[in-house]
Design a protein around this nucleic acid. Structure first.
Lengths: 211, 211
DNA sequence: TTATGTGAACCGGTTCACAGCT
DNA sequence: AGCTGTGAACCGGTTCACATAA
């Protein structure tokens, strides 16, 4: 099926809330409670889930554990994903140390950088290797995702190299639009955009919807 | 006027492309070229701009410099914004060192952390202070924005403290939904969500629109 | 009675078609 | 003629209303 980006983002949010409910000892949850925690309408939540099946019990609600597993599976988090990180600067270092990824079955199995001063050093326990190792590492470590954390000027060249090396997915943190082939799964995180949204609002403008 | 979140995000993208055009020596640009660079339709771009005025010349296009200035002003980037960073961990350190913010008139004037082991250290040239200094720094440095880069478990308490200290905008990097008063400008960056979008696509799903 | 699941109605953001300037 | 600016048409995502099941 053809799913919208907002729906996928909300699934991530639901999953996060379910994990919290689970920690707090909840065994079941209604669409209205989970929706409120996720800052969406209950019908929105039920519609989102309906694209993938029916996971609840009428009159009762959802099993926290089961729904959590189902959403994790929908997002592909039931299997583990090996990823490499390109760029051993401060952002790359931060990402490699970020615990949240590990919880979601995403593991960094390689860190690469073309700066000779960085090659050979260890970051979060992983030895930094030159960019030329991209394909070798993909094969030896079964890596499928590459994360771009290099300066904007280098990002497109790195992206092309990643695609040539046979990676299937790219997460880009460089503040630049990349040309990536259709068949590669792609997501861009623009950090400056986050600030610009806030300064925009603080300059007297009002956003429609979502606070 | 009431502007949609997608429009604001696109304005950020246009601005980034205009800066690139400017570096490459372009003096004017048509909506179709700028739109193509931004991966949107030309009519979308013109409609986005039309919410704020008419900045082009019919038959010619847009002055790169002028449009750049106008969008920067719309986003509030014509003035400078002082921000504090809460959380001196690896993510906080990376954010404080990120050059892109500085280019857009966003400056970190304080780094705070409640971990006694971190207080007193210097991060990107700024001395780490205890969280209790939030309001003092806001006043002395004229800071308006606070950036949350602490673990999820601590984020809501930090957010409440930020609001009490009189900050007007919050950018949140903790992977948790925060309850924030209506009147505070708010934007959340969810890093795990980026990966989940990619693993979702790699699990055989197709997103509608935008590659 | 309570809460899910879903076709239908609705709405707002996107795209179209063309009027308006240069 | 060329390209912008914009009301109108369109479309897809959200919300509603209610059938369905426990």
């Amino acid at each position: 099926m053809r799913i919208s980006q907002p729906t996928v983002r909300r699934l991530s949010v639901y999953l996060r809330q379910l994990e919290q409910l689970s920690e707090e000892g909840y065994e079941t949850v209604s669409s209205s409670l989970l929706a409120e925690m996720s800052a969406v309408k209950a019908t929105q939540l039920r519609k989102d889930l309906s694209y993938f099946g029916s996971f609840g019990v009428r009159g009762i609600g959802y099993s926290v554990r089961e729904l959590s597993n189902r959403i994790a599976k929908i997002l592909g988090l039931d299997e583990s994903w090996n990823a490499v990180l390109i760029g051993a600067g401060s952002l790359g270092t931060a990402l490699s140390a970020y615990r949240e990824f590990h919880r979601h079955n995403i593991r960094f199995v390689g860190v690469l950088d073309n700066d000779p001063a960085k090659v050979g050093k260890r970051i979060s326990g992983i030895e930094v290797k030159p960019l030329g190792q991209l394909e070798t590492i993909r094969k030896s470590e079964n890596a499928r995702i590459a994360v771009i954390a290099v300066p904007a000027a280098a990002a497109q060249a790195v992206a092309d190299f990643i695609v040539d090396a046979g990676y299937r997915g790219i997460v880009n943190f460089a503040p630049i639009r990349l040309k990536i082939p259709e068949e590669i799964a792609y997501y861009a995180v623009d950090l400056a955009m986050a600030f610009e949204s806030v300064t925009f609002q603080l300059t007297g403008n009002v956003l429609s919807e979502e606070g």
